[in-house]
């Protein structure tokens, strides 16, 4: 092998090693994007993702000068024989004022099942200003066969809600909870939401 060929071969090896390193890096980057995206959305409130932990009521002066309309939308999901309804479709609150609204879950089947209501807020720049004090959406729910359960949502809009927002929509979508996700929070996992 001539010197020219040796140099060439070493060059090819170096290129291949660097390319493979770049490949592995990009594959890892794709997976790293998942938590990064989540963090990004939570910090900016994009995508309507709200905190799923309870927050304390902040006692601040209620802004009597303005009203904000809060709308509630509930949606069912394939694979869960539940119905979800809300006591009032919309209400008007002042920023800073704590409000309560009742949601009713009905299990239409004769078997117990687990489900979860996943919240979303629109417009997304209101997300950070919706303070949930108590919400059924913080954890999975268990409903016995034919059970009917009424649970409250207590929330407060912060006073620094941007001026241009005068309507906020809260959407709750019901999802069945699968075996996999349940392991940690259930002791008797005999009947669970069926797979779609």
């Amino acid at each position: 092998m001539t010197e020219y060929e040796m140099v060439r071969k070493a060059g090819v090896q170096r290129t291949v090693i660097r390319s493979v390193a770049a490949l592995i890096g990009m594959f890892a980057f794709a997976f790293a994007l998942v938590p990064l995206y989540d963090v990004f959305c939570r910090i900016t409130g994009l995508n309507g993702k709200v905190d799923t932990t309870a927050q304390a009521i902040v006692h601040e002066e209620v802004d009597q000068s303005r009203y904000v309309t809060v709308q509630f939308i509930t949606r069912g999901s394939a694979g869960l024989p539940w119905q979800m309804s809300v006591a009032t479709r919309q209400m008007r609150v002042h920023p800073g004022q704590a409000a309560e609204v009742e949601f009713t879950f009905t299990n239409n089947s004769h078997q117990e099942s687990w489900g979860r209501a996943v919240p979303s807020v629109s417009p997304s720049n209101a997300t950070a200003h919706v303070r949930k004090v108590s919400c059924f959406c913080f954890q999975e729910q268990l409903l016995q066969g034919d059970e009917r359960l009424t649970v409250p949502l207590v929330f407060q809009l912060s006073r620094d809600l941007p001026e241009e927002i005068n309507t906020i929509t809260l959407v709750y979508t019901l999802y069945p909870v699968h075996n996999m996700a349940m392991g940690a929070s259930v002791n008797n996992n005999n009947t669970l939401g069926d797979e779609i």
Binding site: A30, V34, Y37, Y175
Partner: peptide
């Protein structure tokens, strides 16, 4: 049984679109 793109388990279908179009 993971939930990368399934809202029920804390995932997000919009994330799929971001990754796909990236």
């Amino acid at each position: 049984g993971t939930s990368f793109f399934d809202a029920a388990g804390g995932g997000d279908p919009v994330l799929f679109q971001h990754l796909f179009w990236f």
